Amino acid sequence: MTTPLTRARTLTTFPPPVMEARRWISGVTFAADKPLINVSQAAPVEPPTEGLRRAIAETALNLPEAHLYGPDLGLPALRTEVAKSVSQTYNGTVHADQVAITSGCNQAFCAAMISLCGEGDEVILPTPWYFNHKMWLDMSGVKTVPLATGDGMLPDPKQAEALITPRTKALVLVTPNNPCGVEYPQGVIAAFRDLARKHGLALVIDETYRDFHSDSGAPHDLFTDPDWSDTVIQLYSFSKAYRLTGHRVGAMLAAPERLAEVEKFIDTVTICPNQLAQHAALWGMQNLGDWLAGERLEILDRRAAIEEGFDVLAAQGWKLLGVGAYFAYVEHPFAKPSDQLAKDLVQEAAILALPGTMFMPEDDPSGQRQMRIAFANIDRAGIKTLFARLAALVPDGASA
């Protein structure tokens, strides 16, 4: 007899969306002349550069301590490099003791939330939200308060303020956004910082995709404030920048007092970040600046291809709600809800994409009309093919 799960924390949330979508293609055979176009996940599928792979191999062979436990908050050299990089990028001041290295950006979010929230506390998330943020809040007994975005898929600080209660502990922003791709303007970000400070809250800003921002300058001025760490917690991932998704290495920037609490979580869950991954991230930061600049230009070109080629879908009633970094977020013209449409696209068009229902509260009907396209792994030609397949699906019975 299995142990009952009626009180298990995992039952408070939904199955992992990407894993759920992968099950839709299990056992499906795709024609050679119509292979699967997988736009379901925002993760590079190519391996790291040969130089980075060699650096990982040399570290594994020649640095014995890379196979041992390391400091809970990460390698001092990597923390220092991150502080230096952020200070330069944002024209601000960040110190190494304000940096923690984590096992991916998801762990950074979890660590931040557990250091901020207790049972029954509240966190405000703009919708559409990044589903793993919602999942962790569910499993940790924290109430997610959805903040609907408006024009341009941007959150409104005034609307956010109306949602704040005595139980609110944090406001969360993701920019460039997942799932919408939208880059939040500096003024919006600053307004949320001011709002958080006014109410004694944390502003948690997830910048996983900052390396692919369309603006080559600082995306915001949060770090120019000498007191930034009394309010701001920044999250970052090395996975997208250096193709290190499987190595799980991310970062959190926060006050040293906050990181002392985060250290308890890391020590309990992973003890320390992966040592080889940290050396890989450090090598990447020190040696792959020009290469990463080229990757950014390629992603920006794919974004341009989405915008330039969308007319073929617009003619069929599709709407482009947001685009940037790795994502395009769209509204479809079909009568069927997006969760059914996404499954049908596998069979009818050999396309795997995630429905808007995976990024929205169950009681928000807009998710049924929306879909996310993660275009990091399809080039201009692939985008053209994707749009052609979608345009070929005549929306019979579509809603007006």
Rank of each mutant, 00 (worst) to 15 (best):
277 A>I: 05
25 I>G: 05
311 D>Q: 04
123 V>D: 12
348 E>T: 02
73 L>I: 01
361 P>T: 03
6 T>E: 14
161 E>R: 00
68 L>A: 14
119 E>V: 12
94 V>S: 02
372 R>S: 11
336 K>W: 06
275 Q>F: 09
229 S>I: 05
356 G>D: 06
203 L>E: 01
115 S>N: 14
374 A>Y: 03
27 G>I: 11
284 G>T: 03
85 S>F: 08
129 W>D: 08
395 P>C: 02
283 W>A: 04
339 D>G: 02
281 A>G: 04
255 A>Y: 09
2 T>G: 09
106 N>C: 10
12 T>V: 08
100 A>Y: 12
215 D>E: 11
388 A>V: 10
195 L>D: 14
105 C>K: 05
137 L>H: 02
395 P>W: 02
56 I>V: 15
394 V>W: 05
192 F>V: 00
245 T>M: 11
85 S>I: 08
361 P>L: 00
146 P>G: 10
58 E>H: 10
70 G>E: 07
363 D>K: 09
326 Y>H: 14
363 D>R: 11
318 W>Q: 05
194 D>M: 00
343 K>R: 14
143 K>F: 08
231 T>D: 04
254 A>I: 13
318 W>H: 06
142 V>F: 10
317 G>C: 01
218 A>I: 07
351 I>A: 01
205 I>E: 06
18 V>W: 12
293 A>M: 08
198 K>T: 14
281 A>Y: 04
54 R>Y: 09
27 G>Y: 08
114 I>K: 13
285 M>G: 03
91 N>G: 14
118 G>P: 09
203 L>H: 03
177 N>M: 06
76 P>I: 07
310 F>Q: 04
345 L>Y: 00
17 P>I: 11
139 M>N: 13
56 I>K: 03
99 V>E: 07
400 A>H: 05
354 L>H: 01
